[in-house]
Write a protein that binds this DNA or RNA. Structure first.
Length: 827
RNA sequence: GCCCAGAUGGCGGAACUGGUAGACGCGCUAGCUUCAGGAGCUAGUGUUCGCAAGGACGUGGGGGUUCAAAUCCCCCUCUGGGCACCA
């Protein structure tokens, strides 16, 4: 019989579905394990290799855990709101609801072909009212707790997408979606107060089993810095000018001040003769795109305001400038410039011929040498009044103390993280459940009036104004408070809001009275293993952590973190480039599934290399996995007479085994050990290699099966049964089929348990000793393990080839490592 | 510019706390088989010198530590990822 994956895979997928093999009863949390892959974005109707690489291996891990006795909950859903669907709709005229639902239909069929353990009864779709009702509930919950607010702020605007963007969605000054240059605009927008949680988001990273790289990215994004807010005084007006610095030790080196062009004090302190220049500069700065502003190699620009400020440490009068290298959104929007010890200030000072003062002496340098560039590290304080001679580290503390005592400074912590801008001027998203009333102001839609349904009869062409604003029937409503006529909020939510809480929804996917059942949620969450792309390191993953904490504080859940353990699959590239439609290098998995089957394809993806590294796509080796799978299939067909027969006995005593039965048994248990460790750690490539090694050994063993003794046949059956169970997570359909051939009637995933390693069989009995002379290998010999060091030395000395290298020489030293090597050092 | 990760045969990749470099697979070579299919089996396969025994060289480049380095330290090159005037 020939291995026919198409037939076998169909058969088992049908049977799993019919029997509900992977159904999980969420009311019973005993041995629960919540394994989650990032749900799918259904913008295109085809699964690509990246999806398979995400879902296949994760399913392997989940199946492994199931076999070890866990009750694995593995759901799947659709992140269905979002710009790509809407942009496609603008182009094709097909309504995004229609295209999204059609895509989901296609995608579901393809997902099922993977043959993963998804419990489809818990499927979710973020774009349907059954889901977004609760996205709106989430918004209102944050609103009630002061974590959602509306404010006017300079925000990122994508002129192509015609909407605002969160900071996280601006990549190098370009829109994350469409790569257009992003502008700043002053707009009233909705924000989530993620900065309230900045410190906790930073601190809790330490407890998470996440890739260090990802934690580091989040730490950098949060960007905590400790310093002092120092108050300078504007001489003419008496206004306080506050600046934040991490280097109060350089305070004696301040030679000018700089305000961000947007700083409110600018208009007040600018002297009449400078008004025109300043106004022109502000005008120009506001027109720049983020790219222009951020280009680091660009020359610094700025203009003096004509005002002066007084340095509180030495009463020195210094000029105040405005320049766009100072960001209004960070700290106080103003800086004290220390050109001697800050690269940016140095560059600016050079540009405008401002004085540069050396106040931190670099170790080994002469105080009177002029600075060639800013010295930004620690050193000895000089020209610093009473602080001269102090090391800068101490100086930071001492000067901070003095400023605090005198009431002109305060220690402060600043974060780079900004509040999350969640409103969007687009159509295909969850409407913001707020009503604007002329008398009552902002009024939240009462919960019992949710959902605020997204109307379908809207012209969603992007114009920069929210499409919903054009729908009178949508916009006009009554105020829930006073009953008079009022307007709905015309914006929709960032799709990252939908995905910031979906993991909470899964176990309660069908619940229609609440976003999630409190008890079930607290039992099944946090997610035990979360798998998805590293591109979400700071967006989705940070948002989800924040939402979890906010809901905890609102009293809905009893845990701090949503994802205890995180794995990122690597990226599969093609010819070195990320696969994308525009590059035309997308590889369609379907041709491989048709030819080799799902088992072979997913296993090949796992065998290609380390899971977390990904790699460049090549189908060159897939035949290797195909051969492996067929060899397994044929090996079992040829031996069913033993497998289904009387040789089943798991109580084999290793000590009674001899020769190759002993070796096979040992190999079997070595493999069990390796598979258990490697599969747990997502090291699928080496796990599969170990399975191949075991198969090679079994094949050799079976060549003389007919003349083997009963005990030898028993060892064979024992090994092959364990082998099938170990193959099962990697090639589930194949495993079911051969398991059935062995006379089993129930699914391997419900009837088998992951084998336990017989430690007594692992003792290595023979070892190869490497004999070296001066560190170079000159001979090898096999001895039994534990052979005495002196014996090893004697054997080395008497070795013919070794003799050639030591004759006539003096042995200075002999290094002998038990069971490993002998190294003779001769002169 | 700064931070992080990496570089191993013709190819994908293995290698525990420094102790046989190249597991496993692809490819290639030879042989055997077959109801000739994109099949199976056996042996070989880092480079190089040699009939062989056995040498020399070898983990991006250069230095170092050590009896011993893919592994530890320093410098450099390249590749991938992140941040990008955050004071």
């Amino acid at each position: 019989m020939k291995y026919n994956p198409a037939e076998i895979e169909k058969k088992w997928q049908k049977r799993w579905e019919k029997e509900g093999t992977y159904h999980i009863d969420v009311t019973d949390p005993v041995h629960k394990l919540y394994c989650l892959v990032m749900f799918i974005y259904p913008s295109a109707s085809k699964l690509h290799i990246g999806h398979w690489f995400n879902y296949g291996p994760t399913d392997t891990w989940a199946r492994f855990k199931k076999l070890t006795g866990k009750r694995v909950f593995q759901p799947m859903g659709y992140d269905a709101f979002g710009l790509p669907a809407e942009n496609a709709a603008v182009k094709t005229g097909v309504h995004p609801h229609k295209s999204t639902q059609e895509n989901i239909e296609d995608i579901r069929i393809q997902l099922k072909r993977i043959g993963a353990m998804y419990d489809w009864r818990y499927e979710i779709d973020t774009s349907v009212p059954e889901y977004y009702t609760w996205t709106q509930w989430l918004f209102l919950t944050l609103y009630k707790n002061g974590n959602a607010y509306r404010a006017k702020a300079p925000v990122n605007w994508c002129p192509s997408c015609q909407t605002v963007l969160a900071n996280e969605q601006v990549i190098e000054g370009l829109c994350e979606r469409c790569s257009s240059p992003v502008n700043k605009k002053d707009l009233v927008q909705w924000f989530f107060r993620i900065t309230n949680y900045a410190d906790e988001l930073l601190e809790h990273l330490d407890n998470l089993d996440w890739p260090e790289k990802t934690k580091l990215m989040q730490r950098n994004w949060i960007g905590k810095s400790t310093g002092v807010e120092i108050q300078f005084t504007i001489t003419d007006t008496g206004d306080a000018l506050k600046v934040f610095t991490t280097r109060p030790d350089t305070l004696f080196g301040v030679t000018y001040m700089v305000l961000a062009p947007e700083h409110p004090l600018v208009s007040k302190i600018t002297t009449p003769e400078n008004k025109e220049h300043v106004a022109r500069y502000i005008e120009q700065a506001s027109k720049k795109t983020e790219i222009d502003r951020q280009a680091i190699d660009r020359e610094k620009t700025g203009v003096p305001t004509g005002a002066y400020a007084v340095n509180p440490i030495n009463d020195e009068k210094i000029p105040v400038w405005i320049a766009d290298y100072v960001l209004y959104s960070y700290g106080t929007g103003a800086v004290m410039a220390v050109p001697g010890h800050d690269e940016r200030d140095f560059e600016f000072a050079k540009q405008f011929d401002l004085p540069i003062r050396n106040v931190i002496l670099e170790p080994g340098k002469n105080e009177h040498e002029p600075l060639e560039k800013a010295y930004i590290d620690e050193g000895t304080m000089i020209q610093s009044g009473a602080y001269t001679g102090m090391d800068s580290k101490t100086g930071i503390e001492k000067i901070s103390d003095e400023l605090e005592e005198r009431g002109v400074g305060k220690r402060k912590i600043n974060y780079r993280l900004r509040d999350w801008l969640v409103s969007r001027q687009r159509y295909w998203g969850a409407p913001i459940p707020i009503i604007h009333c002329d008398t009552c102001g902002e009024v939240p839609v009462p919960e019992d009036q949710l959902p605020v349904e997204l109307p379908t009869d809207v012209d969603f062409k992007p114009t920069g104004e929210s499409p919903l604003a054009r729908s009178e029937s949508y916009m006009n409503t009554t105020c829930p408070k006073c009953g008079s006529g009022a307007k709905r909020d015309p914006d929709t939510m960032d799709t990252f809001v939908c995905s910031s809480w979906y993991y909470l929804r899964f176990p309660s996917a069908t619940l229609d009275t609440a976003p999630f059942d409190k008890e079930t949620t607290n039992q099944w969450l946090p997610v035990d293993k979360y798998v998805g792309g590293a591109e979400h390191a700071v967006m989705h993953l940070l948002y989800a952590r924040f939402i979890t904490k906010a809901l905890r504080d609102a009293g809905y859940i009893g845990f701090d973190e949503p994802f205890l353990s995180l794995v990122h699959q690597g990226t599969i590239t093609n010819q070195g480039a990320k696969m994308s439609k525009s590059k035309g290098n997308v590889v369609n998995p379907n041709s491989f599934i048709d030819r080799y089957g799902s088992d072979v394809f997913r296993m090949y993806l796992m065998f290609m290399g380390p899971y977390e590294e990904g790699g460049d796509w090549s189908d060159a080796g897939i035949v290797g996995i195909d051969r492996f799978v067929r060899r397994v299939y044929h090996l079992i067909i040829e031996n069913t007479s033993y497998l289904a027969g009387k040789f089943r006995d798991d109580r084999i005593l290793f000590d009674t085994l001899e020769s190759d039965a002993r070796n096979l048994y040992r190999k079997c248990h070595q493999t069990i050990k390796k598979l258990s460790v490697d599969t747990e750690r997502f090291q699928f490539n080496t796990a599969i290699a170990a399975l191949m090694e075991l198969l090679n050994e079994i094949s050799r063993y079976t060549q003389s099966m007919h003349q083997r003794s009963d005990i030898e046949k028993t060892v064979f059956v024992h090994t092959i049964r364990n082998f099938i169970i170990m193959v099962a997570p990697f090639a589930p359909h194949l495993a079911e089929e051969v398991w059935e051939m062995c006379g089993q009637t129930e699914s391997i995933f419900t009837s088998a348990t992951w084998p336990r390693c017989d430690e007594s069989a692992l003792n290595i009995e023979e070892v190869t000793i490497v004999a070296q002379v001066n560190g170079r290998i000159r001979a090898k010999f096999v001895v039994s393990a534990g052979t005495d060091q002196n014996v090893l030395k004697e054997m080395t000395l008497s070795n013919e080839n070794i003799k050639r290298y030591i004759d006539g020489k003096q042995i200075v030293k002999a290094i002998i490592v038990k069971d490993k090597l002998v190294n003779l050092v001769v002169r």
